[in-house]
Amino acid sequence: MMERPAALARRFARNRLAAFGAVVVFLLIVTALFAPWLAPRDPYAQDYQALLRPPSPAHPLGTDELGRDELSRLIYGARISLEAGIVSVGLAVAVGLPLGLFSGFVGGFWDEAVIGRLTDAMLAFPSLILALAIAAVLGPNLVNAMTAIGISMAPAYIRLIRGQVLAEREREYVEASRALGASVSRQIFRHILPNVLSPLLVQASLGVASAVIAEASLSYLGLGTQPPTPSWGSMLRTAQGYLTTAPWLSYYPGLAIFVVVLAINLVGDGLRDLLDPRQRRRV
């Protein structure tokens, strides 16, 4: 039985780590949405009088090699990370959910020979290498990076959904509805889909964390967000060139990625404890 949302929310909040994660994620969303109001300066404005300045009252996190305000770039970078996380996972779910439902429900040739083997083949590629290769041939930019990450993540969702469908469709209540003459779409939308949603939500929330890291990795390698757009990964790429002269440039973008990814992971872990009864802690 599903609990009522209010009860679920209370139980979630009792998990202090997950609650902390949720607060950080909320702050990230606020930062991304209100970046123009929160950033003290224009993240693109170059100041050749103030190149590579260490942190000071005028520039709390210092300036980069073009004299741009590091704090403002960090704030705007939240937008890229959030967008990359949501869009990539959205794409993976948009591909994985229908294919997984179809594969699990139809079974037989399509499931075994076509979709099953296709996911096997895709899972054989190390996902970062697959994403790199796709982004490289499509051309380096944020949209292609998100596409590449989404595609490389999709097979995991196909497999998850398929497994859930196979488990659910054998349950008595679905068999009963089948015996009562329920249509295929009614079985899927009324009975199976709602039960597939919890594991999907857990995997998707953890997936956003991986996607944020993946986008930062691609940008760090020069295959994601392109300059001058501020993204945390590309900021670290530049920072590596100034490790000895301006080490502060290496601190904050990485810290931002770490805190955000950790927060999303904590939320995902909390959701799993909450929604998956098998994982629930034994008291």
């Binding site: 990795s217 670290l236 290496s250 990625i257 990814v261 992971n265």
Partner: peptide, 11 residues
């Protein structure tokens, strides 16, 4: 799991 490898490397 959340620590970006390239950042840890730089640090």
């Amino acid at each position: 799991l959340s620590l970006p490898q390239f950042w840890l490397g730089l640090l």
